[in-house]
Design a protein around this nucleic acid. Structure first.
Lengths: 233, 233
DNA sequence: ATGCTGCTATGTCAAATGACAGGGTTTGTT
DNA sequence: AACAAACCCTGTCATTTGACATAGCAGCAT
């Protein structure tokens, strides 16, 4: 199993069990849909490398990006207990995923206490991330939202070793930023320019650069997040 | 343990284990803080009766209401794995909670596969609810958001037997609605009046009335949610 | 009665954000 | 070279939402 800095390793016997449980690795390229909203996926995944996004479509075409997923994240928890997907998952970079059969999910929770705890840990932290996103959408204006998102992404990049120099190399279009933050594309563009002029965040198509993380955090009214060791399933 | 319609019951031995695990019942009145953001609570809770809300404060006084909690919900998952609360929890009605020691949380996940699965189920559904809320905040305008929230609350009321006649008796101020939907109080007031005039939702201080649930769902671009049997921890 | 508190309502104006329309650049394809 | 497809950028104007100030109304204590 691939090593990834920032993620803890399991004991040998847990690793054995994982090895028997997993159904192999899958690879997707940027733009590929891993899950499609409304379908019943037979497999669940763990992200081993790459970045993805979780999106939700309304019937009239509006799209909301719910969150981004980094190495270590579990894809399909909701499908695991409900069957049908309420959102889609799409690759933002080349990704490699580790696949599990959905029907075995119950066994995982039941027979592997340690993994079950890790799963709970991941679920709790995903919830915390969504909470933060809700605070952004509800209370912060366009610029604050952008800075908050940029800080979040760079922080996750740092945690998972994807942003070694404090610069996250990740191609996200302004349209995607707009759909994540609930803003129009035009307003997103203007706000990004403003932040660039202010020297707070330099966000281009292919990279996010934050000159001063502390200053950015203060601007967006974020409390300093401490790095955490994420579990790996 | 109190019976609550819409929640499934456990087998006798699981009930025994729960009985030994729980530390007793607690009662709070409207306005009481069950958890305070930034503290490390020694207890976790299950909601047995009543309604609460989860809120998040920014240092400059802005407040975001994250979600509402109904009977069957688990309070403190994030504190269980992290220790420190990222949000506050406040009672909206008289509530009775079932308390567990936080230090025993690991035992619950480890030793009770069935309960561990239920916990995962609850976490997944809480995540889905937050997802829906994010879609509201990001993509829906003021009126759509309000209708979406009203439908969500009435649906949860129906599921948990709190809204027998399709009318949810629950006192929520316009200020709270505003803080939930990320709108100003004044705009919330005007939008509520508009919805009342349109006959879509009649939301007063003490009750939410939706004359035609299907129509309301269509207005807010919500897909019809099916009732689910929620687990009880 | 008086004042107080928390909540809902209204009027007026300002600021944030969205809609539409069009132009520019890069990249890849034929 | 010509074209097309994605992007990013800019100008102008409309709409949504927020800010501020004020009034009314019920409950409640003195």
């Amino acid at each position: 199993m691939a090593q990834c800095p920032g993620l803890h390793q399991h004991s040998p016997n847990v690793r054995d069990w994982i090895a028997s449980f997993r159904k192999g690795e899958v690879r997707y390229e940027r733009g590929d849909q891993v899950f499609v909203q409304g379908t019943r996926p037979p497999y669940l995944f763990t992200v081993m490398a790459g970045v993805l996004m979780r999106t939700r479509l309304l019937e009239d075409g509006r799209r909301q990006i719910i969150n981004f997923m980094f190495p270590g994240d579990f894809i399909g928890l909701q499908a695991a207990v409900d069957g049908e997907m309420a959102h889609s998952v799409e690759a933002l970079t080349s990704v490699t995923l580790c696949a599990f059969a959905r029907t075995q999910f119950f066994d995982l929770v039941t027979q592997q206490p340690r993994l079950s705890f890790d799963l709970t840990w991941l679920a709790a932290h995903e919830e915390a991330a969504l909470e933060e996103h809700i605070v952004s959408l509800g209370q912060r204006n366009a610029r604050e939202r952008m800075v908050a998102l940029a800080v979040f992404l760079v922080q996750r990049g740092l945690d998972t070793g994807l942003a070694p120099a404090g610069v996250l190399q990740l191609t996200i279009t302004q349209g995607q930023i707009a759909d994540m933050l609930g803003l129009s594309l035009v307003h997103t563009n203007r706000s990004l320019q403003a932040l660039r002029r202010l020297g707070l965040v330099d966000w281009t198509l292919t990279a996010i650069r934050i000159p001063d993380l502390g200053q950015a955090r203060r601007f967006a009214h974020l409390d300093g997040g401490s790095a955490r060791l994420r579990p790996y399933i």
